[in-house]
């Protein structure tokens, strides 16, 4: 049985989690080219090595981030999304800056 350490709930069977895809840097939707937005939404880098990914704990509806080695399938660490996202993204404003 594979164990994933949820930052909120602690170590749990990986069957309790859903994979949420790679963490992408989000371009400013009001300023970026369509191609750039499409790549952000639909394309993954699919890198061989250590990547940062979204994971979701189903029972507590909790999204968090995990660093995982895609070659060895080893989970390096897990951490709350609030470590990366300090502020709420406001889509009504033109920030002019790319979001993580």
């Amino acid at each position: 049985m594979k164990i994933l350490n949820c930052p909120l709930n602690g170590p749990r069977n990986i069957a309790e989690f859903s994979y949420g895809g790679e963490l992408h840097r989000m371009p400013d939707p009001s300023k970026c080219e369509s191609r750039e937005w499409v790549e952000h939404v639909f394309f993954n880098e699919n890198k061989a090595g250590i990547v940062t990914e979204w994971w979701y704990h189903n029972a507590s509806s909790y999204w968090f981030l995990a660093e995982r080695n895609t070659v060895t399938d080893e989970i390096i660490r897990t951490f709350p999304a609030s470590d990366v996202f300090k502020e709420r993204v406001d889509f009504s404003k033109e920030t002019g800056e790319a979001q993580e």
Binding site: L8, N9, E16, N58, A59, S60
Partner: peptide
């Protein structure tokens, strides 16, 4: 908060 008889 966990899986109980395979339901959340």
């Amino acid at each position: 908060q966990t899986s109980l008889a395979r339901v959340n």
